[in-house]
Structure formats: C-alpha cells, structure tokens
Design a binder for these strands. Structure first.
Lengths: 107, 107
DNA sequence: ATTTTGCGAAACCGAATAGTTGCATATATA
DNA sequence: TATATATGCAACTATTCGGTTTCGCAAAAT
C-alpha cells in the first residue's frame, strides 16, 4: 500500500503519537496508555507511521520500541521550503519593480 | 465542518493546487485545466483549502481568484518547530551527560 | 510445562472522502 | 433580451479510513 508522509500526519492521533515519542522511544502498550482507543487501533497507527518511515522500530526480545525518524520529518520541511523559495523570488521581483519605479521617478 | 490544515494537505491534488497558485492567484477554471479531474472536483478541493484558511478568495466580477494564505502555511511549520525544540533539548541533555562523563573521567 | 504478556494480522463496520453528473445563479457578451 | 461563461452546490457512488473484536504467535514469567 502506498504510504505518504502527508497522509500519515493528517490524523490527529498519529500527530500526537509522534509528539509523544519524539523525546524517547516507546513500546506500543506504553503509547496506547496515553490514548482512549484500543492498543490495536494504536498499533494500526504505528504501522502506518512505520510504513511511511516516520517511525523506526527497535526490537528487543518481544518488545518493540518505536522512535521518530527525524530525517523523514524533513520531508515535510522540504515541501514547505518550495513555498519559501517561490515567495522569496516573488518578493525579489517586487523589489526589482519598486527599484525600477524609484529609478523612473528620478528621471 | 471542522477543517484541519493537516487533513487539507493530505491530498496530493490539493498540495499540487497550493504549489500551482503559490506564485500567483488563479481562477477555478484556470486551475482545473492543470488537472485530469473535473472542474467541480477541483472546486471541492478549493472549498476545503479555503475552509481551513490555506486559501483566500479575491472576487472580481463573476471570477474568483484563489491565492495561498502564506500566514496559514506557518501552522505546519509551527508544528514541526515542536520537534526541533524537543530534539534540541534532548541533544543538550546528551551534551550534559557527555560532559559529566568527561568530568568523572578526570577524577 | 503452563500461564501470562506483548505484539501484529484479519475480519468486520460505520463514517468520511474524492470523484462524478446534474442543476441553479450571477455576470459578461452578442 | 437572449446566450454564453464562471462558479458553487446537491445528490449519488465507490473507496478509504479509523475503530473494534477476535485470533495467532513468540517471548517471559511462574
């Protein structure tokens, strides 16, 4: 199944999970304790977050620690960066126009 | 209906719309020309993006120009900033631990 | 060896989603 | 005035989504 970072963070529970374990890795049971829904529901969220690589698994015995993949979080920032770039050039073009107007005024 | 920025950008078509009109405002018809789906489908996307304030409408006669609300885009960045903050303190704590180890070694 | 614990996977269900077609309305244009 | 154009809205549909319950399995604990 195609998993997308943006689709993954669309769900508020999944965003909460990311924030919860951003500080330190946690097991599914420990994570589920912080939410009203069942462990299985949380497990589904973890699966989705793992499939899009926002989470990494660390296996220790029968426990699985989930931790945030900081590197993948950058994908969101990269997308935002596109807009920053567009707006910068747009404003620099505006600057050029304003400079031209100033120039014309002098004449 | 409750509209969320994260839910809005979950859809790839909506992300494409945002990028398309980031440079300059466009009308629904002009936007729809860039996609395979019908004008009505695009119009629905525009409605969702407008409801969560990622887009602003400019009315001129019977035409409606849609433009990106750069300010609302910051909401996404604010969310990302939480993680940056967590990771900064986590690393500074790590620094403290390392410093302590160094201290202990001296003794 | 038996029981408990931690976990994922499957089957199912109601709600939400993205798309379509068809229609109504207001503004240009002939 | 009649017609074409730009747009939003409603009804319908197939699919996806988030949740639950039930189950199976492997690792600990007893």
């Amino acid at each position: 199944m195609r998993r997308d970072v943006f689709q993954a963070i669309a769900d508020p529970t999944r965003r909460a999970i990311l924030l919860l374990i951003a500080a330190h890795a946690m097991t599914p049971n420990a994570i589920a304790e912080h939410f009203d829904s069942t462990r299985q529901a949380v497990s589904k969220h973890l699966k989705i977050l793992t499939e899009c690589e926002l989470l990494k698994q660390k296996f220790t015995g029968r426990e699985i620690y989930y931790e945030v993949n900081a590197n993948k979080m950058k994908d969101i920032d990269k997308w935002l960066a596109q807009f920053r770039k567009i707006w910068e050039t747009r404003f620099s073009q505006l600057d050029a126009v304003l400079a031209q107007l100033k120039q014309d005024k002098k004449k």
